[in-house]
Every structure is written in structure tokens, then in C-alpha cells.
């Protein structure tokens, strides 16, 4: 199956998962011109929300991307609490699930800094431009520096609109 990142986001939204899109895909939503091959989300790492996430992704066969042999995602009430992040691969693209975003904070703080955007007919929280710039600056990797330049230019262009 080919990568389809907006469908991945739609699945989470339709599955009532509490999340916000962050990272490179959030940059694309805001108008960045680079290509990103995955979706990063910040989500509530409660047992209920993680089990909803697992159910939402069940048709696209999520696996742990960083484990040897790419083990299937098998969250239970007992093991949910051990995860702070999930790095997944699915049939339709990679999904990184973070409990915390550097420069912004935990999910609740990320959600407060997010705006509701329609993606594929569903309302989705996406980290706002200012917070996304803070997050990218906090990461400080070369790709993030380029993203910051694009996002700051977009910020200025929006002000001029």
C-alpha cells in the first residue's frame, strides 16, 4: 500500500484518539514546501487513549519500527504504562507518537497551543505556527533549522496577507 499520511491522521481522528499533529506534517499543514515521509503526533499516553489508538490503527497493521523484527503493536492494560513514545510503521506510513514535545510540553500544553484544522473532512488539532517554531528551535537539528526558516517566513507572509 502506498503512503497516505492524511488518511493516517483521519483514522486517528475517527477513532476518537486524543492527539495533535506536530513536527514536519504540521509544517506542511501550515504551508511548508518540504516533503516529509511520516506523521508525528503528540497524544495523551493514558491507557484508554493508547488502546483507542491501537484500535484506530488496527486495519493498517501497526508495528514497532525500532524493534528487531518490527514487532506488532500489542498494547494491553498492563503494558500501556511503560511507553513514553511509540515509533510505529503502518501500511500507509510511519507514525511517531510522542507524549511530550520539546519546547512546548506535555499533550495538554500542546493541545492548548494547537488550532483545529480540517484534514480529509475531519477536524484535527495541529500545533500552531508559533508553538511549532518553538518546538523546531528546541530540537536544533539541521532539518529543523531549515523548517524554522520556512515557518518564520510563512508567519511573516500571513501577517502581510
Amino acid at each position: 500500500m502506498k503512503k497516505d499520511l492524511s488518511s493516517l491522521v483521519e483514522l486517528l481522528s475517527k477513532g476518537a484518539v486524543e492527539f495533535a499533529v506536530v513536527g514536519g506534517y504540521a509544517g506542511v499543514v501550515h504551508g511548508c514546501s518540504y516533503v516529509t515521509a511520516d506523521v508525528d503526533i503528540c497524544c495523551l499516553f493514558s491507557e484508554e487513549n493508547l488502546l483507542r489508538l491501537q484500535k484506530a490503527l488496527s486495519d493498517v497493521h501497526p508495528v514497532h519500527r525500532m524493534t528487531p523484527g518490527h514487532q506488532a503493536l500489542r498494547l494491553t492494560e498492563e503494558n500501556c504504562g511503560q511507553f513514553k513514545n511509540l515509533y510505529l510503521d503502518t501500511d500507509i506510513g510511519q507514525l511517531d507518537c510522542l507524549s511530550f514535545v520539546e519546547g512546548v510540553g506535555s499533550f495538554l500544553q500542546v493541545k492548548e497551543s494547537s488550532e483545529e484544522v480540517e484534514i480529509g473532512g475531519v477536524a484535527v488539532y495541529v500545533l500552531g505556527l508559533e508553538a511549532l517554531i518553538k518546538a523546531k528551535k528546541a530540537m536544533g537539528r539541521p532539518n529543523d533549522k531549515e523548517a524554522v526558516l520556512q515557518l518564520e517566513a510563512i508567519q511573516k507572509l500571513r501577517e502581510e496577507k
Binding site: 499520511l5 506542511v28 499543514v29 504551508g31 514546501s33 484534514i119 526558516l149 518564520e152 517566513a153 507572509l157
Partner: peptide
Amino acid sequence: GIEAAIEHGIDVHQLAANVKRSVSERL
């Protein structure tokens, strides 16, 4: 912000065009 992006080689005209597009169109 815009001049810094231009100096870095970013096509700010493309960003300007993207800003005018809907989210659906960007995606």
C-alpha cells in the same frame, strides 16, 4: 524572516503561493 529564508535558498514565492492555498490543497 523572509530575507533570512531567501538567503538560505528557500523559494519564498512557493511559500507565498502555499499560504494562499487551502489546507486540503497543501496536503
